[in-house]
Simulated assay, not measured.
Amino acid sequence: MKVMNIVGARPNFMKVAPLHRAFSCYGDIESLIVHTGQHYDFQMSGIFFQQLYLPEPAYFLGINSGSHAQQTAGIMLEFEKILLMEKPDLVLVVGDVNSTLACALVAVKEHIPVVHVEAGLRSGDRKMPEEINRIMTDAIADHLFVTEQSAVDNLLKENIPASKIHFVGNVMIDSLLHCLKGLSVDQESAHLLSSGPGHILLTLHRPANVDELDGLVEIMAMIRKLTGLQKVIFPVHPRTLRSFELNGLLSHLRRIKNLEILAPQGYIEFLTLVKRASLVVTDSGGIQEETSFLQIPCITLRESTERPVTVEVGTNHLLPAWNAESVFELAKQILRGNCKKGRIPNLWDGSTAGRIVTILREKYINSYVCADKRQSSD
């Protein structure tokens, strides 16, 4: 069985790495990695291949940046060439980025089964491009592997046959545990970029938060308040940095006391910062999962979350109509110890990739072997 695993943006690498390792345990599976180039600089892409021990991609499409339409169309045109040449048995996509939808569309039109890992997540906000990517990919995928019960419920409501849906857990946690096990105390100290434990970690990149001047002004007001509670460490996403620069606010941001501004971090460096944090403030999806597993309090600055288990079971607090004062008040309560004690969601145990590969082998290899044996006996 030949499987093509699609990666494009930063979150994809952590999801594909454990799957590639699990596929590679079997001599009857050829696992190829295709990198679309959606994230293409070293800090957003190359460093993850190093830290997650991923092999060089079999193919690099080099699409780079552009509008959603340009990126999606460019990926489809280039991926079609590779697909027709390699003729894989399966195309595996993860998450909800443009690369996910683009490659799924090309595969399904060539009648190649599509596997969607992290399927069924819904925020209910169709202004998010990721939400559209999720809905459309799930509608055409042949196998949908989900991380939480809400995803199962969402897919059933959308009339996806139950036979296609598999509740297997979260491959992000597989990568998290794999990296933590290999991280010695000395390495952790070397990777730690803050002065020590007990900081607030901040990440922001959603267009709704960082694309407009009013939002950036509110972010700066929030940071000023949070730095009065603890040191704030802020690895700045390229999109966010560009927005601060274009609006003439970067120099003002750099002058805020008790704020440490960093470039985007590698996975191990970022995990170290999360582990040592007293609180994480974010608008990211994946960080909600990592903090819930690590039992670190998290405030998510969004109207909704596609990962409700992190709020219902984990350590995540959703702050829909947020402003600087509301974030400050909630952060103050959390740092005083007045916060919920979350628990790790079901099947987030580091074995998800193995469960996925077992199901796919049973469907595409073992079933054919059994059929061949029956035909031979006949």
Rank of each mutant, 00 (worst) to 15 (best):
E362G: 14
A277H: 00
V185K: 05
A141V: 08
N258Y: 05
E86S: 11
H252G: 08
N316T: 13
F328N: 12
I365P: 03
H252D: 14
D186L: 01
Q265H: 02
L204R: 05
T72Q: 12
T291S: 11
L19T: 03
A9S: 14
I261L: 15
A139W: 06
Q295L: 13
I33P: 08
M128V: 11
E86V: 14
E269P: 01
I359L: 07
E306Y: 03
P308S: 06
E56P: 10
V94G: 08
L249W: 04
S243T: 04
S195V: 04
P345V: 03
F244R: 04
I82T: 07
L250A: 08
V97S: 13
P235H: 04
Y368D: 13
N338R: 12
K164M: 12
V236A: 13
E158T: 12
D174M: 04
E312S: 14
G169D: 05
L180V: 11
Y364F: 15
F79H: 12
A141R: 06
I6Y: 09
L335M: 00
N170S: 05
E289F: 08
M136I: 13
V34M: 12
Q71W: 01
R336T: 05
T310Q: 01
A221D: 15
R355K: 08
T310I: 02
I261F: 00
H111I: 11
S278T: 07
D125W: 07
I75F: 13
R302P: 14
Q295S: 15
V115I: 14
M128I: 05
G27R: 10
T36C: 09
T358G: 10
L101F: 10
F60Q: 12
M1C: 11
C370F: 08
L144D: 06
A102S: 11
S284N: 07
G337L: 00
L262P: 01
A151L: 03
T300F: 05
K109Q: 15
R255Q: 12
I233G: 03
R355L: 00
M85I: 07
R10H: 08
E269F: 00
V236H: 04
I165N: 09
A321Q: 14
M136G: 06
L253G: 09
G66C: 01
D153S: 09
P161M: 02
